[in-house]
Amino acid sequence: MIHQWHHGGMNGWGYGLAVLLLIAVLAGVALLAVLVYHQAADRRPAGPRAGDPEASEQRPAPERLLAERYALGEIEDEEYRRRLAVLRHRE
């Protein structure tokens, strides 16, 4: 009678191939994740990011609009200062 050491299951080569297949699948998933991340990063707007010094120099939209109206002469000094104080108090 011939003794079967593997008892009908996988032998050493079977486990080795299973591990190699698992590593290959995980590497493929990681590569796909990196590619998707870079594609998404390319589609993001190229504006200033948080913590960027240029972002802190920009005024919020309401203050910018008020400054434009003042520059165009649509509102007087007193009204500009009053409205600016209201906007800054609100934030």
Rank of each mutant, 00 (worst) to 15 (best):
H38K: 14
E63L: 14
R64Y: 09
R69Q: 07
L35G: 13
L31H: 14
P60W: 12
A40I: 05
R59A: 11
R49Y: 11
V34H: 15
D52C: 07
A30C: 04
L22H: 07
L22I: 10
A18P: 01
R69N: 05
A71E: 06
G51T: 02
P48V: 04
H38L: 08
E68D: 11
P45T: 05
A18N: 04
E63W: 01
Y70F: 14
V19W: 10
A67Y: 01
A71D: 08
A27S: 08
R64N: 03
Y15M: 05
A55L: 14
E68H: 05
V25Q: 05
L35Y: 13
Y37Q: 09
E63T: 01
I23E: 02
L20Q: 07
P60L: 09
S56K: 08
A67D: 02
L65N: 15
A18L: 10
R69A: 09
A27R: 09
L35S: 15
L20E: 03
A18T: 01
A61Q: 13
R64T: 03
L22C: 13
A50I: 06
A33S: 12
V25W: 08
E63D: 05
L35A: 13
G16E: 03
L21E: 00
A50L: 11
R43S: 14
R49Q: 14
R59D: 04
L21Q: 04
E68C: 00
V36Y: 13
R49C: 02
L31W: 14
A41M: 13
P60S: 13
L72H: 09
G28E: 00
P53D: 02
Q58P: 00
L72K: 12
R43N: 13
A46S: 11
V29P: 01
R44W: 11
L66S: 09
A50H: 14
A41I: 03
Q39H: 15
I23R: 08
G28A: 07
E68S: 09
G16T: 03
L21R: 04
R44E: 09
R49I: 07
D52Q: 07
L21G: 12
G16I: 03
L32M: 09
E54L: 10
L72S: 05
D42K: 15
A30F: 03
R43P: 04
Q58K: 15
Q58G: 02
Y37T: 05
A71W: 03
A46V: 04
L20N: 06
L22A: 15
R43G: 06
A30N: 02
P48N: 11
I23S: 12
V36P: 06
L31F: 12
I23G: 10
Y15W: 10
A46K: 15
Y37S: 10
V19Q: 08
A67V: 00
P45Q: 13
D42F: 13
A40G: 12
P53Q: 04
H38Y: 13
E57W: 13
R43C: 04
L35V: 06
E57C: 03
G51H: 07
V29S: 07
L35K: 13
Y70E: 00
G51F: 04
R43H: 12
Q58A: 14
P53L: 03
P62Q: 10
P45Y: 11
Y70P: 00
E54P: 01
L20Y: 06
G16A: 09
A55W: 05
V34T: 11
L31G: 13
L26Q: 10
L20D: 01
S56Q: 11
P60Y: 09
D52E: 06
A61W: 08
